[in-house]
């Protein structure tokens, strides 16, 4: 077991665990979107789980750093909060906010983070970025709503894990990145529609079981 101090509280965790997992296991919440417990090497892409660790001169992502004996971690410094706020606002600026009609309402990770950071879900500093991408409905059993997607990649990870081969993937690049089901008639797709691990993993209801929810 490894002992570390998080926000002046001593916690214990298994060796090899990430700081993020150690905190979550001990009831210390750190905002996160792209992380799943099952991941060996988390992508570190949402940049929300930043913490300050003694010995580092800048906040670092707690999902990519392993615990060490005697480590001193702070999850709530002004510096951390500033970056988390910006990251959240940025994500919100490409998210189509329509909570009332969204199937994720009340179970949405973005709502949870907003609450935790004492932020609203209305943009103040940034303009809403219009991403004119249509809802994807060409999959036999899934539906994808790009304007909600935060590109965390959890769906891809879960599909890979469940099926040995991911049947969805990131496509395109940069701000145009989307989740794609490309591959009509793929053999892999024939088995789709049984596990829905991707839908379950989605933190914002950007992936849905087709026809389960009306728009």
């Amino acid at each position: 077991m490894v002992r570390l101090v998080v926000d002046n509280r001593q916690i214990e965790t298994e060796e090899g665990a990430t700081v993020l997992q150690a905190c979550l296991d001990n009831g210390i919440y750190i905002p996160n979107l792209c992380y799943l417990k099952e991941m060996d090497s988390p992508p570190g892409s949402c940049r929300l789980c930043l913490v300050e660790v003694d010995g580092y001169n800048q906040p670092i992502t707690s999902c990519t750093i392993k615990v060490k004996e005697g480590m001193i971690v702070k999850t709530n410094t002004e510096h951390v909060r500033r970056l988390q706020r910006t990251a959240f606002e940025l994500l919100l600026s490409v998210h189509h906010v329509d909570c009332r009609r969204c199937p994720a309402n009340r179970s949405c990770e973005l709502q949870r983070i907003a609450k935790y950071l004492h932020l609203g879900v209305k943009l103040k500093r940034f303009e809403q970025l219009e991403r004119r991408v249509k809802i994807v409905q060409d999959h036999p059993c899934l539906e994808y709503v790009p304007s909600r997607c935060v590109l965390c990649g959890r769906c891809i990870f879960m599909c890979q894990r469940e099926n040995g081969q991911a049947m969805l993937s990131f496509a395109r690049r940069g701000l145009d990145t989307v989740i794609s089901f490309f591959g009509e008639g793929d053999k892999a797709r024939a088995t789709c529609g049984q596990c829905y691990a991707c839908v379950e993993a989605c933190p914002v209801a950007a992936l849905l079981i087709r026809n389960a929810h009306s728009q």
């Binding site: 992508p43 570190g44 892409s45 949402c46 940049r47 929300l48 910006t86 990251a87 940025l90 994500l91 600026s93 490409v94 940034f126 303009e127 970025l129 590109l151 990131f170 395109r172 690049r173 940069g174 701000l175 145009d176 990145t177």
Partner: peptide, 18 residues
């Protein structure tokens, strides 16, 4: 840089666009 951002992380993907 905005066009060349790979799109993986929040700050670069969305921040550079703003």
């Amino acid at each position: 840089t905005q066009k060349e951002s790979c799109g993986k992380c929040t700050f670069c993907r969305i921040g550079t666009k703003h």
